[in-house]
């Protein structure tokens, strides 16, 4: 069952407080319980991967981390998600401010139908950056950290929709970085990309860990194995009475352990391809 994180946080990164502490998190869509009792801690400046079969609730949990689930009308959250000790679902907390600090990159690249420059400047402008020179600096540094600067520096004013899929996704990462977040959530960021573009994004994720905490949802087990420090394996349990599927967290361990000597049999079956 849900594994306590005490054993995990005892390793080399000990000492820094966790970024997120989830305790008994449950998410409902209307009457339907999509995720059951997830408890875990997510460490700073690491890449944490969520893996598991379709419908296991990994994306749902990810979207709780920056309150993106608020946008789904019927969604309801129980338990708590603490971010640096603050309950994200406290009535006084603004989802907007949360998302400024905890950015998100989506499955399908979703650049705004505007120029590359305006895509990047949008977030900073909202947060009060008005001076052209400041904006220029932010645009350049964000594009550099998303490894896109060299490819687009000569056409910052052209439409972002003219970029390739992989470039668009890196633009979305840069757009996220431009508001100086603390955490970047990525929801299957490479599922719409070809292998070469995927490899570039994976390299980029490793570079970004020097400054950012990253949580990634992926369908691709090799990706989780390649890039993440820790992996959480989710699966679905079928309620025999209602025949409804509910997502549960099976195991949360350092990635190397998940892919070599997992604690749970179900994890082993999944990572070796015998299930899911």
């Amino acid at each position: 069952m849900a594994v306590t994180t005490g054993t995990v946080s005892a390793d080399d990164k000990a000492g820094s407080d966790p970024v997120f502490e989830l305790s008994s998190l449950e998410v409902f869509y209307g009457e339907f319980r999509a995720v059951r009792e997830v408890s875990m801690e997510i460490a700073e400046r690491e890449i944490t991967a969520f893996i598991g079969p379709s419908g296991c609730g990994k994306t749902t949990v990810l979207r709780c981390l920056n309150r993106m689930n608020d946008l789904i009308e019927t969604a309801r959250v129980q338990g708590s998600v603490k971010y640096h000790g603050v309950d994200l679902y406290d009535a006084a907390v603004s989802a907007t401010e949360v998302r400024r600090r905890i950015g998100m990159v989506f499955q399908k690249p979703n650049p705004f139908p505007k120029s590359i420059y305006d895509n990047l400047a949008f977030g900073p402008r909202l947060n009060g950056v008005k001076k052209k020179s400041d904006l220029d600096d932010i645009v350049e540094s964000s594009l550099k950290s998303a490894a896109l600067w060299d490819e687009v520096k000569d056409r910052l004013k052209s439409s972002a929709l003219g970029l390739s899929g992989g470039q668009q996704q890196r633009l979305c990462i840069a757009r996220c970085v431009a508001v100086k977040p603390d955490v970047i959530l990525m929801d299957e960021p490479c599922s719409a990309l070809d292998p070469i573009a995927t490899a570039r994004i994976e390299d980029l994720m490793r570079e970004l860990t020097s400054e950012y905490t990253i949580v990634i949802v992926t369908h691709n087990m090799q990706q989780a194995a390649r890039v993440s420090d820790r992996t959480a394996f989710f699966t679905t349990e079928v309620n025999p009475e209602s025949d409804r599927r509910t997502g549960v967290l099976v195991e949360y361990n350092p990635t190397s352990k998940i892919f070599s000597t997992p604690d749970d049999e179900r994890t082993e079956q999944y990572v070796t391809g015998r299930f899911g």
Partner: peptide, 16 residues
């Protein structure tokens, strides 16, 4: 600089 990282507390996460 408004985009510097600030310590996280309840006050900081309020939209004002």
């Amino acid at each position: 600089m408004p985009l510097a990282r600030t310590p996280v507390n309840l006050e900081a996460l309020r939209l004002t």
